[in-house]
Amino acid sequence: MRVNWLLAGVAAIAAVGLVWTPYDPLAQDFRELRLAGFGAAHWLGVDGLGRDVLSRLWRGLGNTAGLSLLALGLNFVVAAAMLTVEETTGRIGRTFVPLVASVWLGLPVIFLSLILLVFLPPGGATLVLAVALGNASISYRQLRISWREQIRAPYVEASETMGASGWGFFRRTLWPNLAPDVVALARLIFALCALELSGLAFLGLIGDPDFPELGAMLRQNQAYLTNAPWLLLLPGSLLSGLLLVVHLSGHRVAQD
């Protein structure tokens, strides 16, 4: 049995954090309790600006997961478009698209994000675009390998001989065999997007310094490393936990 229920549970918790948290994660309502530790009213304490840490972590998890999911979707759209162009434009596409992908692969995400920030304002949308485009060549290359393996498989030749074609052929014959590879790739790209997006936010490229995102929270709280280390350990552990859950969702667990 796959442990996808764990990933679904984390996704549900993150989604709730986008619309509801115990306190306003942006409001500095508890300045008299600055750097207070764990307690009944504030389970994970209060940060250095008087904000409830649990509320900020919960919203931060939702923002990190949500932005990473958007980046994953855009990434797959770009990668699929590249593969479609290659497959439908003959020799020119088969020569030009892989060449572009190879050059693209050498562009670091941080460099791409800095280029985008010349033309776009700092913010979550810009970082989503940067990490989506930065990993598009990886997705394209992996999708290309899976696609080529499937269309050359004997079952495809047999189906085409029997007259199968079009969308129905893809949905009933190709997709069931492609799906495991696509899902595995989606897990990898989501994890890369989450890690890179949080890294860019940690560098301050998210724009709003108070935006509750896990990487941005690490940057905001680094000044409290010595006197309130939990303010860094908690968002770092939550980001690591998110990546671990994504990894575990692709593994089987033993059944009695």
Rank of each mutant, 00 (worst) to 15 (best):
H247L: 13
M162Y: 15
T21E: 02
E32N: 14
G45A: 03
S113P: 06
R152D: 10
S240K: 10
G163Q: 12
L61N: 05
A36Q: 13
L231C: 02
L44G: 02
F38Q: 11
N75C: 12
L238M: 11
A186I: 12
L243S: 02
A11V: 11
I13H: 04
S237C: 11
P209S: 07
A101V: 06
Q28L: 11
L61M: 15
G93E: 00
V103W: 13
L114I: 12
L6F: 12
T226I: 11
V77F: 12
L244R: 09
V109F: 01
V128E: 01
L203E: 07
W147H: 11
L61F: 12
R51M: 03
T89I: 03
R219M: 07
P108V: 08
A228I: 03
A12H: 10
L185V: 11
Y224M: 13
L120Y: 08
R187N: 13
L244A: 12
M217Y: 01
G134N: 00
P180F: 11
R144D: 01
R91Q: 10
D181H: 15
A191V: 14
Y140F: 14
S159R: 09
M1V: 13
A8Q: 13
A12F: 14
E32P: 01
A194P: 07
N177K: 12
L214V: 00
S237H: 05
A11I: 10
G241I: 05
G124E: 01
